[in-house]
Design a protein around this nucleic acid. Sequence first.
RNA 1: GGAGAGAUGUCCGAGUGGUUGAUGGAGGCGGUCUUGAAAACCGUUGAGGGUCACACCUCCGGGGGUUCGAAUCCCUCUCUCUCCGCCA
Length: 424
Amino acid sequence: MVDIKFVKENLEIVKENIKKRNVKADAEKVIELYNKKNSLQLQLDGIRNKKNENAQKMKGKLPEDERNKLIEEGKDIKNQIASLEEEQKKLEEEYLSEYIKLPNLTHPTTPIGDTDKDSTELKKVGNPRQFNFKPKDHTVLANDLDIVDFEAGASVAGQKFYYLKNEGCLLELALVQFAMRLLVEKGFTPYMTPDMAKSSILEGIGFAPRGNETNIYSIENSDLCLIATAEITIGGMFLNKVLEEKNLPLKMAGFSHCFRTEAGAAGQATRGLYRVHQFSKVEMFVICKPEDSDKILEDLRSIEEEIYTKLGIPYRVLDIASGDLGNPAYKKYDLEAWMPGRGEYGEITSTSNCTDFQSRRLNIKFKDSEGKNKFVHMLNGTAIAVPRVIISILENFQREDGSVEIPEVLVPYIGSKEITRKGK
RNA sequence: GGAGAGAUGUCCGAGUGGUUGAUGGAGGCGGUCUUGAAAACCGUUGAGGGUCACACCUCCGGGGGUUCGAAUCCCUCUCUCUCCGCCA
Protein backbone atom coordinates (compact mmCIF):
# COMPACT_ATOMS: atom_id res chain seq x y z
CA MET A 1 0.00 0.00 0.00
CA VAL A 2 0.97 3.59 -0.47
CA ASP A 3 1.92 5.87 2.42
CA ILE A 4 -1.37 7.42 3.50
CA LYS A 5 0.33 10.62 4.56
CA PHE A 6 1.77 10.96 1.10
CA VAL A 7 -1.69 10.49 -0.37
CA LYS A 8 -3.06 13.17 1.92
CA GLU A 9 -0.38 15.68 1.06
CA ASN A 10 -0.12 14.90 -2.66
CA LEU A 11 -3.67 14.19 -3.65
CA GLU A 12 -3.27 15.49 -7.20
CA ILE A 13 -0.23 13.36 -7.88
CA VAL A 14 -1.99 10.29 -6.56
CA LYS A 15 -5.10 10.96 -8.62
CA GLU A 16 -3.04 11.42 -11.74
CA ASN A 17 -1.18 8.21 -10.98
CA ILE A 18 -4.45 6.28 -10.71
CA LYS A 19 -5.37 7.57 -14.15
CA LYS A 20 -1.99 6.59 -15.58
CA ARG A 21 -2.37 3.13 -14.18
CA ASN A 22 -5.88 2.69 -15.44
CA VAL A 23 -6.98 1.38 -12.06
CA LYS A 24 -10.31 1.71 -10.34
CA ALA A 25 -9.51 3.57 -7.14
CA ASP A 26 -10.77 6.71 -5.47
CA ALA A 27 -8.10 8.69 -3.67
CA GLU A 28 -10.52 11.34 -2.42
CA LYS A 29 -12.74 8.75 -0.86
CA VAL A 30 -9.73 7.19 0.83
CA ILE A 31 -8.79 10.54 2.37
CA GLU A 32 -12.35 11.22 3.42
CA LEU A 33 -12.58 7.86 5.17
CA TYR A 34 -9.15 8.33 6.68
CA ASN A 35 -10.14 11.64 8.23
CA LYS A 36 -13.40 10.22 9.48
CA LYS A 37 -11.61 7.29 10.97
CA ASN A 38 -9.13 9.56 12.70
CA SER A 39 -11.68 11.85 14.28
CA LEU A 40 -13.55 8.82 15.57
CA GLN A 41 -10.30 7.52 16.97
CA LEU A 42 -9.77 10.81 18.75
CA GLN A 43 -13.23 10.59 20.27
CA LEU A 44 -12.60 7.04 21.37
CA ASP A 45 -9.24 7.97 22.86
CA GLY A 46 -10.89 10.68 24.91
CA ILE A 47 -13.40 8.27 26.37
CA ARG A 48 -10.75 5.66 27.02
CA ASN A 49 -8.87 8.34 28.88
CA LYS A 50 -11.94 8.85 31.04
CA LYS A 51 -12.09 5.13 31.61
CA ASN A 52 -8.50 5.09 32.81
CA GLU A 53 -9.06 8.05 35.08
CA ASN A 54 -12.13 6.42 36.54
CA ALA A 55 -10.24 3.24 37.27
CA GLN A 56 -7.43 5.26 38.79
CA LYS A 57 -9.77 6.90 41.25
CA MET A 58 -10.85 3.57 42.63
CA LYS A 59 -7.42 2.37 43.58
CA GLY A 60 -7.48 3.32 47.24
CA LYS A 61 -10.08 2.89 49.95
CA LEU A 62 -13.28 4.79 49.32
CA PRO A 63 -16.55 5.31 51.15
CA GLU A 64 -19.14 2.85 49.91
CA ASP A 65 -21.44 5.40 48.26
CA GLU A 66 -18.61 7.16 46.44
CA ARG A 67 -17.32 3.86 45.17
CA ASN A 68 -20.75 2.87 43.88
CA LYS A 69 -21.07 6.17 42.13
CA LEU A 70 -17.78 5.64 40.34
CA ILE A 71 -18.76 2.12 39.35
CA GLU A 72 -21.94 3.47 37.79
CA GLU A 73 -19.91 6.03 35.90
CA GLY A 74 -17.57 3.31 34.75
CA LYS A 75 -20.43 1.22 33.44
CA ASP A 76 -21.68 4.14 31.45
CA ILE A 77 -18.24 4.74 29.98
CA LYS A 78 -17.98 1.09 29.11
CA ASN A 79 -21.16 1.24 27.07
CA GLN A 80 -20.03 4.30 25.22
CA ILE A 81 -16.78 2.65 24.32
CA ALA A 82 -18.52 -0.47 23.08
CA SER A 83 -20.77 1.41 20.70
CA LEU A 84 -17.96 3.61 19.37
CA GLU A 85 -15.78 0.57 18.86
CA GLU A 86 -18.43 -1.03 16.76
CA GLU A 87 -18.67 2.07 14.62
CA GLN A 88 -14.92 2.19 14.34
CA LYS A 89 -14.70 -1.39 13.17
CA LYS A 90 -17.11 -0.72 10.32
CA LEU A 91 -15.34 2.46 9.32
CA GLU A 92 -11.97 0.77 9.47
CA GLU A 93 -13.12 -1.96 7.10
CA GLU A 94 -14.61 0.52 4.71
CA TYR A 95 -11.44 2.58 4.76
CA LEU A 96 -9.16 -0.39 4.25
CA SER A 97 -11.11 -1.77 1.33
CA GLU A 98 -10.77 1.57 -0.46
CA TYR A 99 -7.21 2.11 0.63
CA ILE A 100 -5.81 -1.16 -0.71
CA LYS A 101 -7.14 -0.32 -4.15
CA LEU A 102 -4.60 2.47 -4.50
CA PRO A 103 -1.78 1.37 -6.79
CA ASN A 104 1.87 2.02 -6.11
CA LEU A 105 3.37 5.21 -7.49
CA THR A 106 4.95 4.97 -10.90
CA HIS A 107 8.58 5.45 -11.84
CA PRO A 108 9.09 8.65 -13.86
CA THR A 109 10.64 6.75 -16.77
CA THR A 110 7.84 4.19 -17.06
CA PRO A 111 6.03 4.51 -20.39
CA ILE A 112 2.46 5.70 -20.04
CA GLY A 113 -0.35 3.70 -21.57
CA ASP A 114 -3.16 1.29 -20.92
CA THR A 115 -2.10 -1.89 -22.65
CA ASP A 116 0.86 -4.12 -23.24
CA LYS A 117 1.27 -2.45 -26.62
CA ASP A 118 2.29 0.73 -24.88
CA SER A 119 5.28 -0.93 -23.27
CA THR A 120 8.63 0.17 -24.65
CA GLU A 121 10.91 -2.34 -26.28
CA LEU A 122 14.30 -1.43 -24.86
CA LYS A 123 16.36 -3.82 -26.90
CA LYS A 124 16.53 -7.07 -28.77
CA VAL A 125 19.32 -9.47 -28.03
CA GLY A 126 20.23 -12.34 -30.34
CA ASN A 127 18.65 -12.78 -33.73
CA PRO A 128 15.71 -15.10 -34.18
CA ARG A 129 17.17 -18.03 -36.03
CA GLN A 130 16.45 -18.43 -39.73
CA PHE A 131 15.33 -22.00 -40.35
CA ASN A 132 15.88 -23.68 -43.67
CA PHE A 133 13.07 -26.02 -42.76
CA LYS A 134 9.70 -25.49 -41.14
CA PRO A 135 10.31 -25.25 -37.39
CA LYS A 136 8.08 -27.32 -35.18
CA ASP A 137 6.03 -26.29 -32.21
CA HIS A 138 7.40 -27.44 -28.84
CA THR A 139 4.45 -29.77 -28.26
CA VAL A 140 5.31 -31.68 -31.40
CA LEU A 141 9.01 -31.79 -30.58
CA ALA A 142 8.38 -32.84 -26.99
CA ASN A 143 6.03 -35.56 -28.05
CA ASP A 144 8.30 -36.92 -30.76
CA LEU A 145 11.30 -36.87 -28.47
CA ASP A 146 9.27 -38.48 -25.67
CA ILE A 147 10.31 -35.88 -23.10
CA VAL A 148 6.93 -34.47 -22.06
CA ASP A 149 3.78 -36.52 -21.53
CA PHE A 150 0.69 -34.34 -21.71
CA GLU A 151 -1.65 -37.27 -22.03
CA ALA A 152 -0.52 -38.87 -18.80
CA GLY A 153 -0.74 -35.48 -17.09
CA ALA A 154 -4.30 -35.03 -18.27
CA SER A 155 -5.43 -38.49 -17.27
CA VAL A 156 -3.84 -38.42 -13.84
CA ALA A 157 -4.33 -34.77 -12.81
CA GLY A 158 -6.33 -33.15 -15.60
CA GLN A 159 -5.83 -30.67 -18.40
CA LYS A 160 -2.77 -28.43 -18.15
CA PHE A 161 -0.79 -30.95 -16.18
CA TYR A 162 2.12 -32.81 -17.69
CA TYR A 163 4.93 -35.19 -16.94
CA LEU A 164 8.52 -34.32 -17.72
CA LYS A 165 10.32 -37.42 -18.83
CA ASN A 166 13.76 -38.43 -20.05
CA GLU A 167 15.71 -35.29 -21.05
CA GLY A 168 12.64 -33.22 -20.19
CA CYS A 169 13.09 -34.23 -16.60
CA LEU A 170 16.86 -33.74 -16.74
CA LEU A 171 16.34 -30.37 -18.38
CA GLU A 172 14.34 -29.08 -15.43
CA LEU A 173 16.99 -30.22 -12.98
CA ALA A 174 19.71 -28.75 -15.16
CA LEU A 175 18.03 -25.38 -15.50
CA VAL A 176 17.40 -25.14 -11.79
CA GLN A 177 20.96 -26.11 -10.99
CA PHE A 178 22.38 -23.73 -13.59
CA ALA A 179 20.35 -20.80 -12.30
CA MET A 180 20.97 -21.52 -8.65
CA ARG A 181 24.70 -21.73 -9.07
CA LEU A 182 24.79 -18.54 -11.07
CA LEU A 183 22.79 -16.74 -8.40
CA VAL A 184 24.85 -18.11 -5.54
CA GLU A 185 27.93 -16.73 -7.26
CA LYS A 186 26.23 -13.35 -7.31
CA GLY A 187 25.64 -13.42 -3.59
CA PHE A 188 22.11 -14.76 -3.45
CA THR A 189 21.21 -17.17 -0.65
CA PRO A 190 19.59 -20.24 -2.17
CA TYR A 191 16.34 -21.51 -0.70
CA MET A 192 13.94 -24.34 -1.27
CA THR A 193 10.68 -23.19 0.24
CA PRO A 194 7.41 -24.81 1.28
CA ASP A 195 4.99 -25.21 -1.61
CA MET A 196 2.13 -24.22 0.67
CA ALA A 197 1.51 -21.16 2.80
CA LYS A 198 -1.20 -19.82 5.08
CA SER A 199 -3.89 -17.59 3.61
CA SER A 200 -2.77 -14.69 5.75
CA ILE A 201 0.69 -14.81 4.18
CA LEU A 202 -0.78 -14.85 0.67
CA GLU A 203 -2.87 -11.83 1.55
CA GLY A 204 0.12 -10.05 2.99
CA ILE A 205 2.06 -10.49 -0.22
CA GLY A 206 -0.92 -9.24 -2.17
CA PHE A 207 -2.63 -12.37 -3.45
CA ALA A 208 -6.30 -13.12 -2.98
CA PRO A 209 -6.44 -16.74 -1.79
CA ARG A 210 -10.21 -17.18 -1.98
CA GLY A 211 -13.02 -15.82 -4.07
CA ASN A 212 -14.08 -16.56 -7.61
CA GLU A 213 -11.39 -14.55 -9.34
CA THR A 214 -8.57 -16.21 -7.48
CA ASN A 215 -5.72 -17.87 -9.29
CA ILE A 216 -4.83 -19.78 -6.14
CA TYR A 217 -5.58 -23.34 -5.09
CA SER A 218 -6.61 -23.69 -1.48
CA ILE A 219 -6.57 -26.82 0.61
CA GLU A 220 -9.87 -28.06 1.91
CA ASN A 221 -10.39 -28.12 5.70
CA SER A 222 -7.28 -26.10 6.25
CA ASP A 223 -5.98 -22.59 6.12
CA LEU A 224 -3.31 -23.54 3.59
CA CYS A 225 -2.95 -22.65 -0.06
CA LEU A 226 -0.63 -23.92 -2.77
CA ILE A 227 1.72 -21.11 -3.59
CA ALA A 228 1.75 -19.42 -6.99
CA THR A 229 5.36 -18.31 -6.66
CA ALA A 230 8.19 -18.50 -4.14
CA GLU A 231 7.77 -14.75 -3.74
CA ILE A 232 5.03 -15.72 -1.28
CA THR A 233 7.12 -18.00 0.89
CA ILE A 234 10.30 -15.94 0.68
CA GLY A 235 8.59 -12.63 1.42
CA GLY A 236 6.47 -14.28 4.09
CA MET A 237 9.57 -15.17 6.08
CA PHE A 238 10.04 -11.50 6.93
CA LEU A 239 6.53 -10.70 8.06
CA ASN A 240 6.61 -8.23 10.99
CA LYS A 241 10.39 -8.22 11.09
CA VAL A 242 12.76 -5.35 11.74
CA LEU A 243 15.98 -5.99 9.85
CA GLU A 244 19.45 -4.68 10.55
CA GLU A 245 20.67 -2.07 8.13
CA LYS A 246 24.07 -3.71 7.87
CA ASN A 247 22.50 -6.90 6.54
CA LEU A 248 20.86 -5.15 3.60
CA PRO A 249 20.44 -5.82 0.81
CA LEU A 250 19.19 -9.35 1.43
CA LYS A 251 19.36 -11.31 -1.80
CA MET A 252 17.56 -14.63 -2.02
CA ALA A 253 16.99 -17.20 -4.70
CA GLY A 254 13.96 -19.36 -4.04
CA PHE A 255 13.10 -22.59 -5.76
CA SER A 256 9.53 -23.77 -5.50
CA HIS A 257 6.74 -25.38 -7.38
CA CYS A 258 4.11 -22.90 -8.48
CA PHE A 259 0.41 -23.66 -8.72
CA ARG A 260 -2.11 -21.59 -10.61
CA THR A 261 -5.74 -22.38 -11.29
CA GLU A 262 -5.70 -20.17 -14.40
CA ALA A 263 -9.43 -19.69 -13.97
CA GLY A 264 -10.72 -17.74 -16.92
CA ALA A 265 -7.66 -18.53 -18.99
CA ALA A 266 -9.44 -21.31 -20.86
CA GLY A 267 -9.65 -20.80 -24.59
CA GLN A 268 -6.56 -18.63 -24.74
CA ALA A 269 -3.84 -19.55 -27.18
CA THR A 270 -1.97 -21.45 -24.56
CA ARG A 271 -0.99 -24.76 -25.99
CA GLY A 272 1.38 -27.14 -24.36
CA LEU A 273 3.72 -25.94 -21.67
CA TYR A 274 3.03 -22.23 -22.02
CA ARG A 275 0.27 -21.96 -19.45
CA VAL A 276 0.05 -24.83 -16.96
CA HIS A 277 -1.34 -25.49 -13.50
CA GLN A 278 1.96 -26.51 -11.96
CA PHE A 279 5.52 -25.60 -12.76
CA SER A 280 8.90 -25.15 -11.15
CA LYS A 281 10.51 -21.78 -10.82
CA VAL A 282 13.62 -20.14 -9.46
CA GLU A 283 12.73 -16.69 -8.23
CA MET A 284 15.02 -13.86 -7.20
CA PHE A 285 13.94 -11.76 -4.25
CA VAL A 286 15.68 -8.72 -2.80
CA ILE A 287 15.01 -6.66 0.31
CA CYS A 288 16.94 -3.40 0.39
CA LYS A 289 17.15 0.17 1.55
CA PRO A 290 14.95 2.64 -0.34
CA GLU A 291 17.84 4.43 -1.99
CA ASP A 292 19.15 1.20 -3.53
CA SER A 293 16.05 -0.22 -5.18
CA ASP A 294 16.34 1.61 -8.53
CA LYS A 295 19.77 0.23 -9.09
CA ILE A 296 18.90 -3.26 -7.90
CA LEU A 297 16.06 -3.47 -10.39
CA GLU A 298 18.64 -2.88 -13.12
CA ASP A 299 20.84 -5.56 -11.54
CA LEU A 300 17.99 -8.08 -11.55
CA ARG A 301 17.25 -7.31 -15.16
CA SER A 302 20.85 -7.74 -16.12
CA ILE A 303 21.04 -11.09 -14.29
CA GLU A 304 18.01 -12.24 -16.24
CA GLU A 305 19.67 -11.10 -19.44
CA GLU A 306 22.83 -12.92 -18.50
CA ILE A 307 20.90 -16.15 -17.96
CA TYR A 308 19.20 -16.03 -21.36
CA THR A 309 22.32 -14.88 -23.14
CA LYS A 310 24.22 -17.82 -21.68
CA LEU A 311 21.45 -20.18 -22.70
CA GLY A 312 21.62 -18.71 -26.21
CA ILE A 313 17.94 -17.83 -26.38
CA PRO A 314 17.06 -14.68 -28.36
CA TYR A 315 14.98 -12.26 -26.31
CA ARG A 316 13.80 -8.73 -26.06
CA VAL A 317 13.42 -6.49 -23.06
CA LEU A 318 10.23 -4.57 -22.37
CA ASP A 319 9.80 -1.61 -20.08
CA ILE A 320 6.22 -2.30 -19.00
CA ALA A 321 3.65 0.44 -19.49
CA SER A 322 1.91 2.06 -16.53
CA GLY A 323 -1.47 0.50 -17.24
CA ASP A 324 -0.01 -2.99 -17.29
CA LEU A 325 2.05 -2.91 -14.11
CA GLY A 326 -0.22 -4.47 -11.54
CA ASN A 327 -0.79 -2.70 -8.24
CA PRO A 328 2.45 -3.38 -6.34
CA ALA A 329 5.00 -2.54 -9.04
CA TYR A 330 6.64 0.85 -9.31
CA LYS A 331 8.55 -0.20 -12.37
CA LYS A 332 8.70 -3.51 -14.21
CA TYR A 333 10.73 -5.15 -16.97
CA ASP A 334 9.73 -8.29 -18.81
CA LEU A 335 12.02 -10.46 -20.87
CA GLU A 336 10.32 -12.11 -23.78
CA ALA A 337 11.99 -15.05 -25.47
CA TRP A 338 11.70 -15.72 -29.15
CA MET A 339 9.48 -18.74 -29.63
CA PRO A 340 9.66 -19.99 -33.23
CA GLY A 341 6.66 -22.28 -32.74
CA ARG A 342 4.42 -19.32 -32.08
CA GLY A 343 6.39 -17.07 -34.40
CA GLU A 344 6.50 -14.38 -31.76
CA TYR A 345 8.05 -13.36 -28.49
CA GLY A 346 6.58 -14.85 -25.34
CA GLU A 347 6.99 -13.68 -21.75
CA ILE A 348 9.70 -15.57 -19.98
CA THR A 349 10.65 -13.43 -17.00
CA SER A 350 9.35 -10.44 -15.13
CA THR A 351 11.15 -8.29 -12.62
CA SER A 352 9.56 -5.57 -10.52
CA ASN A 353 10.57 -2.92 -8.07
CA CYS A 354 7.69 -2.85 -5.60
CA THR A 355 9.36 -0.15 -3.45
CA ASP A 356 7.68 -0.07 -0.03
CA PHE A 357 4.26 -1.12 -1.31
CA GLN A 358 4.52 -4.68 -0.02
CA SER A 359 6.63 -3.93 3.03
CA ARG A 360 3.97 -1.58 4.43
CA ARG A 361 1.45 -4.32 4.23
CA LEU A 362 3.79 -7.01 5.54
CA ASN A 363 5.27 -4.64 8.11
CA ILE A 364 8.89 -5.25 7.17
CA LYS A 365 11.28 -2.55 8.32
CA PHE A 366 14.91 -1.86 8.94
CA LYS A 367 16.58 0.21 11.61
CA ASP A 368 18.51 3.02 9.97
CA SER A 369 21.70 4.66 11.23
CA GLU A 370 19.68 7.04 13.40
CA GLY A 371 17.84 4.15 15.01
CA LYS A 372 14.60 4.90 13.19
CA ASN A 373 12.53 2.09 11.78
CA LYS A 374 11.79 2.51 8.10
CA PHE A 375 10.03 0.37 5.55
CA VAL A 376 12.30 -1.64 3.28
CA HIS A 377 12.01 -1.81 -0.48
CA MET A 378 11.26 -5.17 -2.03
CA LEU A 379 12.00 -6.46 -5.52
CA ASN A 380 11.44 -9.72 -7.28
CA GLY A 381 12.40 -11.22 -10.58
CA THR A 382 12.17 -14.52 -12.40
CA ALA A 383 15.38 -16.41 -12.94
CA ILE A 384 13.94 -19.55 -14.50
CA ALA A 385 10.30 -20.43 -15.06
CA VAL A 386 11.04 -23.96 -16.18
CA PRO A 387 8.33 -24.83 -18.73
CA ARG A 388 8.68 -21.64 -20.70
CA VAL A 389 12.42 -22.06 -20.85
CA ILE A 390 11.96 -25.61 -22.05
CA ILE A 391 9.69 -24.28 -24.80
CA SER A 392 12.35 -21.76 -25.79
CA ILE A 393 15.12 -24.32 -25.86
CA LEU A 394 13.19 -26.92 -27.81
CA GLU A 395 11.96 -24.50 -30.41
CA ASN A 396 15.15 -22.49 -30.84
CA PHE A 397 17.58 -25.37 -30.76
CA GLN A 398 15.69 -27.83 -32.93
CA ARG A 399 17.26 -29.45 -35.98
CA GLU A 400 15.69 -30.53 -39.19
CA ASP A 401 15.65 -34.20 -38.16
CA GLY A 402 13.61 -33.38 -35.05
CA SER A 403 16.48 -33.67 -32.61
CA VAL A 404 17.37 -30.79 -30.28
CA GLU A 405 20.76 -29.44 -29.38
CA ILE A 406 21.32 -28.78 -25.69
CA PRO A 407 22.65 -25.32 -24.81
CA GLU A 408 26.29 -25.60 -23.92
CA VAL A 409 25.93 -24.28 -20.38
CA LEU A 410 23.50 -27.08 -19.60
CA VAL A 411 25.51 -29.92 -21.07
CA PRO A 412 27.47 -30.62 -17.86
CA TYR A 413 24.23 -30.98 -15.94
CA ILE A 414 22.57 -33.27 -18.44
CA GLY A 415 25.49 -35.30 -19.64
CA SER A 416 24.71 -35.14 -23.32
CA LYS A 417 24.84 -32.57 -26.10
CA GLU A 418 21.58 -33.32 -27.74
CA ILE A 419 18.17 -34.83 -27.37
CA THR A 420 17.46 -37.39 -30.00
CA ARG A 421 14.44 -39.34 -31.06
CA LYS A 422 13.97 -42.48 -29.03
CA GLY A 423 13.50 -45.63 -31.03
CA LYS A 424 10.00 -46.19 -29.80
C1' G B 1 -1.22 -38.71 17.35
C1' G B 2 -0.96 -39.00 23.28
C1' A B 3 0.86 -36.56 28.08
C1' G B 4 2.97 -32.37 30.35
C1' A B 5 5.36 -27.30 30.53
C1' G B 6 5.68 -22.61 28.62
C1' A B 7 5.01 -17.76 25.46
C1' U B 8 6.26 -10.58 29.05
C1' G B 9 10.53 -4.93 26.37
C1' U B 10 17.27 -6.04 22.33
C1' C B 11 18.15 -10.47 25.64
C1' C B 12 17.50 -13.00 30.51
C1' G B 13 13.77 -12.67 33.97
C1' A B 14 9.72 -10.72 38.02
C1' G B 15 4.74 -9.69 38.21
C1' U B 16 -1.24 -10.50 45.01
C1' G B 17 -7.35 -7.83 39.32
C1' G B 18 -6.49 -1.26 40.83
C1' U B 19 0.13 4.63 40.56
C1' U B 20 2.85 -1.78 35.89
C1' G B 21 4.43 0.41 29.69
C1' A B 22 5.45 -2.90 33.14
C1' U B 23 10.54 -4.69 39.32
C1' G B 24 15.48 -6.47 38.65
C1' G B 25 19.67 -7.88 35.79
C1' A B 26 22.52 -8.13 31.11
C1' G B 27 23.54 -5.62 26.69
C1' G B 28 23.49 -0.72 23.92
C1' C B 29 24.13 4.59 24.20
C1' G B 30 25.70 9.18 26.99
C1' G B 31 28.45 11.04 31.18
C1' U B 32 31.79 11.30 35.78
C1' C B 33 36.58 9.38 37.15
C1' U B 34 41.35 8.10 34.04
C1' U B 35 47.13 9.86 30.04
C1' G B 36 44.00 5.89 27.80
C1' A B 37 41.22 1.65 29.07
C1' A B 38 38.96 -1.56 32.66
C1' A B 39 36.32 -1.31 37.17
C1' A B 40 32.98 1.74 39.85
C1' C B 41 29.18 5.32 39.88
C1' C B 42 25.20 8.48 37.51
C1' G B 43 21.82 8.95 33.55
C1' U B 44 19.41 6.97 29.30
C1' U B 45 17.51 2.91 26.31
C1' G B 46 10.40 -0.76 22.86
C1' A B 47 6.77 -0.07 18.98
C1' G B 48 2.39 2.03 16.62
C1' G B 49 -1.39 5.88 16.18
C1' G B 50 -2.17 11.05 16.97
C1' U B 51 -0.19 16.39 17.33
C1' C B 52 3.27 22.11 14.59
C1' A B 53 4.70 20.41 19.37
C1' C B 54 2.32 18.62 23.73
C1' A B 55 -1.77 16.08 25.56
C1' C B 56 -3.91 11.56 24.81
C1' C B 57 -4.74 6.40 23.10
C1' U B 58 -3.19 1.27 21.85
C1' C B 59 0.17 -2.91 22.32
C1' C B 60 2.73 -8.24 27.94
C1' G B 61 2.01 -14.82 21.47
C1' G B 62 -3.20 -14.13 18.27
C1' G B 63 -8.57 -13.75 18.87
C1' G B 64 -12.83 -13.55 22.11
C1' G B 65 -15.06 -13.00 27.09
C1' U B 66 -15.77 -11.54 32.53
C1' U B 67 -15.07 -6.64 35.30
C1' C B 68 -16.13 0.06 36.97
C1' G B 69 -10.82 -1.62 36.17
C1' A B 70 -7.03 -7.42 33.15
C1' A B 71 -0.06 -8.83 31.83
C1' U B 72 -2.83 -10.89 36.08
C1' C B 73 -9.44 -14.54 35.89
C1' C B 74 -12.23 -17.59 31.89
C1' C B 75 -12.64 -19.61 26.70
C1' U B 76 -10.21 -20.50 22.15
C1' C B 77 -6.35 -20.64 18.50
C1' U B 78 -1.22 -20.62 17.24
C1' C B 79 3.72 -21.52 18.32
C1' U B 80 7.93 -23.43 21.30
C1' C B 81 10.07 -27.09 24.64
C1' U B 82 10.22 -32.13 27.19
C1' C B 83 8.58 -37.28 27.25
C1' C B 84 5.99 -41.34 24.55
C1' G B 85 4.18 -43.33 19.86
C1' C B 86 4.63 -43.42 14.42
C1' C B 87 7.51 -42.56 10.13
C1' A B 88 10.93 -41.14 4.74
